[in-house]
Computed example of a mutant assay.
Amino acid sequence: MAGHFITFEGIDGSGKSTQARLLADALRAEGRDVVLTREPGGSKGADEIRRLLLEGDPDRWSAETEILLFTAARRDHLERLIEPALAAGKIVICDRFADSTRMYQGLSRGNLRAKVDALHALMIGREPDLTVLIDMDPATGLTRAKGRNGHEERFEDFGVELQAQMRAGFLALAEEFAPRFRLIDGARDMESVARDVMACLREALA
């Protein structure tokens, strides 16, 4: 039996990674077979590309090069982890997928959305069954993200203007792909957000 593919999207610091983990934990507690993964990454090859993308100077790559790198990482992730897990009937929960590339590379760094979509259709060809968009004020999200004090902050270093543009873009994307998107207010305690995420999941996959 085919599994279910669920993705989480949102600006940096929105809490989507936490909510993806909480959902995976809740479903496992119910006895579901769950794979929790992330992008870029999720497979050995994709993790190697992740380091190239998320570390270093903000101007390290052009948007066109980023599109190619993200797609290469996604293809390896899809082949080696996502598709085998779905074929085995598992629930795959992924922190970011192609919608992030549509936004960060296709919108924010030039009008490259058509190129992102064309490459996605050619090399990926899969959309999630359900996408949970955690909505967050851009300034609050950026403060949260920078507070992690990690070394993968290349996109955060573009500043709050990028985060504001991404929020608007994600909200527009949720309308464009309305059947699979669910919008969740992330400006609340994580337990309340998690309850809404689970309710959306049960409704969408009933």
Rank of each mutant, 00 (worst) to 15 (best):
F70A: 00
I67G: 07
P84M: 14
D76Q: 14
T71V: 10
A85L: 07
C94M: 03
E66W: 07
R60I: 13
L69S: 00
T71D: 02
A87D: 02
I82E: 07
R75L: 07
I91S: 03
A87L: 09
D95E: 04
A63I: 10
E83M: 13
P84Y: 11
E64Q: 14
L68D: 01
L68I: 02
E66N: 07
C94Y: 10
K90D: 00
D59S: 11
H77D: 09
K90V: 07
W61D: 09
I82V: 13
E83N: 08
L78H: 10
L78G: 03
D95W: 04
I91V: 07
H77E: 14
L81N: 01
T65N: 09
E83Y: 12
A88N: 05
V92Q: 08
E79W: 13
T71K: 09
I67C: 01
R75T: 15
A85M: 10
I93T: 05
F70P: 04
S62V: 15
E79G: 07
E83A: 13
P58F: 04
L69V: 03
A73C: 02
P58V: 00
K90R: 09
V92N: 06
T71M: 03
L78N: 04
E64H: 15
F70W: 12
I93F: 12
I91R: 04
H77A: 06
L68T: 00
R60Q: 14
D95C: 05
T71A: 09
A63V: 05
C94E: 06
